[in-house]
Amino acid sequence: MKTEISFILNGSEVKVTVDGHLRLIDVLRNTMGLTGTKEACGEGECGACTVIVDGKAVNSCLYPAHEIEGKSVITIEGLHVPKHKLSKIQQGFVDHGAIQCGFCTPGMIMSAKALLDSNPNPSDKEIREALQGNLCRCTGYVQIVEAVKRVARQMKGKQ
């Protein structure tokens, strides 16, 4: 039942022993103590648990832990490097009023990051498509979409 897996977590190699039924979110939150990734439905409907695996946004609550072997995972904790400074996308959410209760925020930011990494100049439609799996009950999404647009513009300006 127990298997040892190794993968890259936020840039560092880790080795953990996992039970067969564990999900990636269990490994992140319970084994690794990275509680920034949230669980809000447990069945891939809300996106709160979104992390980036090999460049793609995935629901870590649906991702069997053993399938992470050899892959690279980025969680919300891996974005703010150096540790005391928020990344551009995180700062964008802070600056543009895109955060209220904050429970959907890590997942929302990870979806936005996966989008901007692959498409630095997304249209309104592409932003909405990238975020449609992330539910938020507080904000009505207006300031979230605005934050992603502004971050994209800002990153483009820097290039």
């Binding site: 990275l34 949230k38 669980e39 974005l79 703010h80 928020l86 802070v94 009023g97 925020t105 890590p106």
Partner: peptide
């Protein structure tokens, strides 16, 4: 908001 940076960093601690 003063609480936004921690929430953006995944550092806010909920009951979960």
């Amino acid at each position: 908001r003063p609480d936004a940076p921690d929430k953006a960093a995944g550092k806010a601690h909920y009951i979960h």
